[in-house]
């Protein structure tokens, strides 16, 4: 490309082509959805069995295990940032949405734990799961994430009628619907786009 002037029609064509080049860049490969999704899936499932059959005195300590995938995700994101040559508005918005989600999760646990409202912790956690998932789905124009977010809302309502142990199964189902399944679909979409 050179420093030359164009006709009006050629200018509009160039604008269109360049905007498409930037817009068609889809960098979400679903990897982190799968890492986090499977981690939480196994932890919530283990929590259910531990609480149901009273296998451990302090089953909540199992949540400490999330530190491992969390650390992996931080390292992965840092490496990804180093290789990226462009940052889109989509990436920026979804990044901040997940950051706010983490802060909200922390506050949710803190407030409800202090209030000893244990029965409400998991239903509200499910509501919070739905928020970033739905927004990411809308921003990425990826329907499975939007549906996953909606599933979290429905499961949150359903979990109100379950005891604390069984609420963990609702959480496992939500994680599968909101992160694991969309994660695999995102990976497939990313690979398909790479091939073209």
């Amino acid at each position: 490309m050179e420093d030359k002037t164009l006709s009006s029609a050629a200018s509009l064509q160039l604008i269109d082509s360049m905007i498409n080049k930037a817009r068609n860049r889809f960098s979400e490969n679903g990897h982190l959805y799968l890492v986090w999704g499977w981690s939480i899936f196994f932890i919530t499932l283990a929590q259910f069995f531990i609480i149901r059959y009273q296998l451990l005195a302090k089953p909540q300590l199992l949540w400490m295990l999330t530190f491992v995938p969390w650390l992996y995700m931080m390292i992965y994101l840092r490496k990804k940032q180093h290789t990226e040559t462009v940052r889109t508005y989509t990436e920026e918005i979804t990044g901040y949405v997940w950051l706010v989600f983490v802060a909200m999760m922390f506050l949710n646990g803190l407030i409800l734990g202090k209030a000893k409202a244990f029965q409400a912790i998991l239903p509200l956690t499910l509501v919070l799961y739905g928020m970033p998932t739905t927004i990411s789905g809308i921003v990425l124009r990826f329907r499975p994430l939007v549906l996953g977010g909606a599933a979290c809302g429905l499961l949150a309502i359903g979990s109100l009628f379950a005891d604390y142990a069984h609420q963990h199964l609702f959480l496992s189902a939500a994680v599968a619907a909101a992160w694991i399944l969309p994660g695999y679909l995102l990976r497939r979409r990313y690979r398909t786009l790479l091939q073209h």
Binding site: M1, E2, D3, K4, T5, L6, S11, L14, I15, S17, M18, I19, K21, A22, R23, T85, V86, R87, T88, Y89, E91, E92
Partner: peptide
């Protein structure tokens, strides 16, 4: 803006938050 390369750069940058020179 009425120059091929400058218009191309502006069209790319209007679609993204920020971009490296290499991009």
């Amino acid at each position: 803006l009425h120059s091929q390369l400058r218009l191309a750069v502006m069209s790319l940058l209007i679609s993204v938050r920020e971009a490296e020179f290499t991009f």
